[in-house]
């Protein structure tokens, strides 16, 4: 008797938990609105422009000739090349807890006001607490355009080699 009661109650409890869990999931409409196309030919050199994708800021920095010349191997691996232009393109949220770091052009670096984290112009961490370089959003290069939210071969390569999450 007790076991039968327990079994019925158990099925009911698991069922309700599944329903509750699912009700908290992001809605289909939220998930669907996930693509943004950027025209990469319009960005000025050396200036940080912020775009928006899935409600998140996207940093786009067209690298100057000086930056391209001094890139290290690890910085090259994060480099996004569209035509003959090189970009630092990343989700503009601190990898610590998600504040938007401010770009300081004079120092060519980013400072996060929340807990004092710092990143260089290539998006790599120069001061903790952030645990890793800026995340790079899924992207696909189409001529001079770049589609955010779609996975192209260049992005897949970065993901496979662990350059971004």
């Amino acid at each position: 008797m007790g076991k039968a009661f327990g079994a019925v109650a158990g099925v009911g409890a698991v069922g309700s938990l599944v329903a509750m869990k699912k009700s908290w999931d992001p809605l289909p409409s939220v998930k669907a609105a996930g693509f943004t196309t950027l025209d990469m030919s319009i960005y000025p050199e050396g200036e940080l422009i912020t775009e928006k994708w899935r409600g998140k800021p996207i940093f786009v920095l067209k690298k100057t000739a000086a930056m391209i010349a001094k890139q290290t191997e690890s910085q090259k691996a994060r480099d996004i090349v569209v035509g003959d232009a090189h970009f630092m393109l990343a989700i503009g949220l601190c990898t610590h807890l998600g504040c938007i770091p401010a770009y300081i052009p004079a120092e060519e670096s980013f400072l996060c006001a929340c807990h004092g984290g710092q990143f260089n112009w290539a998006g790599e961490v120069t001061k903790v607490p952030p645990p890793r370089a800026f995340d790079i959003p899924p992207f696909k290069i189409e001529g001079t355009k770049l589609v955010l939210g779609e996975v192209g071969p260049e992005y897949q390569k970065m993901k496979d080699s662990g350059i971004t999450l």
Binding site: K21, W24, D25, P26, L27, V30, R54, G55, L165
Partner: peptide
């Protein structure tokens, strides 16, 4: 642990929004 899915579940969106 990178439980980004859990964070999105708590928010019901990629960022804090209506949900």
């Amino acid at each position: 642990l990178h439980l980004d899915g859990l964070v999105e579940w708590i928010r019901g969106d990629y960022v804090p929004a209506q949900a």
